[in-house]
Nucleic acid binder design. Structure first.
Lengths: 342, 342
DNA sequence: TTGAAAGCGCTAACAC
DNA sequence: GTGTTAGCGCTTTCAA
């Protein structure tokens, strides 16, 4: 419980060397004799020395961490993206500074401003919609910027994402070709969830392109639309538009809520109504029946982002921006089996 | 895209004042004239100035962030704890530096070491089991330490948690008094998940105290035991010990997996077998039937921790350690309804 | 209310 | 291989 913190100077004095030698002993690639290094590291450990990376970063004018903002901590898909990113980055000795925006671009602005004060090596944000000030801060930060989980029309820097709108097409195609005609959409109306809104927009486009009625839109409520809200929306759908024969939900969580509401009411899925989701969350593969969904490959988004950063950070200047497009995959579940198959 | 970063000096020159005045203008409580402050802040914004908190922290020898480690990002309960903590802390202008250990105390050691290099104002860890070096690092850090989600016998600093072992008692009591005799336990065997292990231990104690057989223990597999593993464990249970009439799962996620396995096999819950979980995850309230569970109040753990820190950080020295015990609540669901009720 | 000087702990740059 | 000097951008301290 010593109160004065042990500094490099203390270690240097104890080892009878200069602080510079101690500094070098802590860097792998330097030119300290092996014996001296071992002695210094041992001594440092005994003294309880902890390097002050605040000072190191200030002096060297660089840091070994990447700032990342996600909409919500409590979302397995974003968590997977961050985990995968982290696994790649930590191999190069980099860390992630994680923050969440609560699906609020004002909150994002505050977070980005705070993060930039810490001088990260790069910054990764989720989505392509930001406040003007956030855009300005990011553009002027002088570090690599990556926007993920989206394909912004007017990107700030690098992009690793997919089209949320186009991701709905395989679902609509599948439902239509398996004989569904009156297809509804749950969610995508929540303020802040731009990706959900994009998916609803894509649903409308795909329906309209097929000459199907795209007006069966059920609001999902507060962002992030959860299981309970999915169940409530399903209840609304069943009472307002009882002839609906299929429903696409903005995520698997709401789809599971919808599914459980059907179970509760004794409505057969997929016989009476087909249900599809988005995200390929674990529950889609475990629910009974399993839920047809779209896998946007969250881990791939994370690892591609990390690889991109490792490439870029080697360079002295930000030469040009890159754009990685991820292709979401259709995942067939029991919840949309065609009636003929039953 | 200017490459040289704008510093306080640049702002000072532009405003025709000293850097000290600029510095003061950025602190709320200082003594700069209102007009000058407004002018300086405006100028700073125009120049794209971003304060370097690396330098500020180094000079002032303090920081405005709290380091937090959790076992996994992908866990709604830990996410809730962090969210609640964050909401309280940000009112005092503090931020959270979040890292996850992947349920591995070696990984935790690395993370704690890295976090301490950044000189956080305090550090919060999940659980009470750490490597010797982690304990030493935490004890010597000279900052408040909080262990959460557990009640360690030999705490390092403050504690905000509950007894995972004792949390099983209400479940066993409930199942026993509603006529269940042959009760199994799924999970709690995964290396790294000490809280799961504690719950299994508590299950055995509660069963033994009632003179019930506590040997129906089904391994859940890799940590964190998920829905799929819960389903697989249920399959094992049903084939190995078919006369089992109730099962407690280490978490609601595995409980839901178990429930869905029963649905798949046409086994009636709770008629043929009762299922209970732990954690009061959203799915427990949405599944059909709803799942009986224990609510450990993850948000309360987070907000209590944050309040404790705000109290402590005001003081100059760490005076004495505090211990907040959270009381988990029993939540009755349909998955354990007594047979007479059916 | 404002400014000048000093220095937080470390590393870049250069010397030997 | 090792040491010396200077200084990263800010805030503490003291003076005016």
């Amino acid at each position: 419980m010593t109160q004065r913190t042990v500094t490099m100077k203390d270690v240097a004095r104890a080892a009878g060397v200069s602080v510079m030698t101690v500094s070098r002993a802590f860097k792998a690639d330097s030119s300290v004799s092996a014996a001296k290094r071992a002695q210094i590291l041992k001594l440092a450990e005994d003294l309880g020395y902890v390097m002050d990376s605040t000072a190191a970063n200030l002096r060297s004018q660089r840091s070994d961490f990447v700032a990342v903002t996600i909409p919500s901590l409590n979302n397995a898909n974003f968590a997977d993206t961050v985990s995968a990113m982290s696994e790649v980055l930590e191999k190069s000795g980099m860390q992630i500074l994680l923050g969440y925006t609560n699906y609020d671009i004002q909150q994002e602005e505050r977070l980005v401003a705070q993060f930039l004060q810490r001088k990260p090596a790069a910054i990764v944000v989720t989505g392509g919609l930001h406040t003007d000030r956030t855009r300005k801060l990011l553009a002027n930060a002088g570090i690599p910027v990556v926007q993920t989980w989206d394909l912004p029309a007017d990107p700030i820097g690098h992009v690793v994402g997919f089209s949320n709108a186009l991701s709905m097409e395989p679902l609509v195609a599948h439902l239509h070709t398996t004989g569904r005609q009156r297809i509804a959409f749950i969610g995508g109306d929540a303020t802040g969830d731009t990706r959900g809104a994009e998916r609803r927009k894509g649903f409308i486009q795909s329906m309209t392109a097929r000459g199907l009625d795209a007006n069966r839109l059920i609001p999902g409520g507060q962002v992030p639309i959860s299981m309970k809200e999915g169940a409530a929306a399903m209840a609304t759908l069943l009472s307002d538009l009882p002839d609906t024969d299929a429903v696409i939900c903005v995520s698997d969580l709401s789809a599971f809520g919808a599914l459980s509401e059907c179970a509760r009411r004794g409505i057969a899925v997929p016989d009476d109504i087909a249900i599809a989701g988005f995200g390929a969350y674990e529950i889609a593969g475990v629910a009974h029946p399993t839920i047809t969904t779209i896998n946007p490959h969250p881990r791939r988004i994370g690892s591609r982002t990390a690889e991109l950063l490792l490439m870029t950070l080697g360079k002295k200047a930000i030469v040009d921006t890159m754009r990685f497009e991820i292709t979401p995959d259709f995942v067939l579940g029991g919840s949309t089996a065609s009636r003929d198959d039953i």
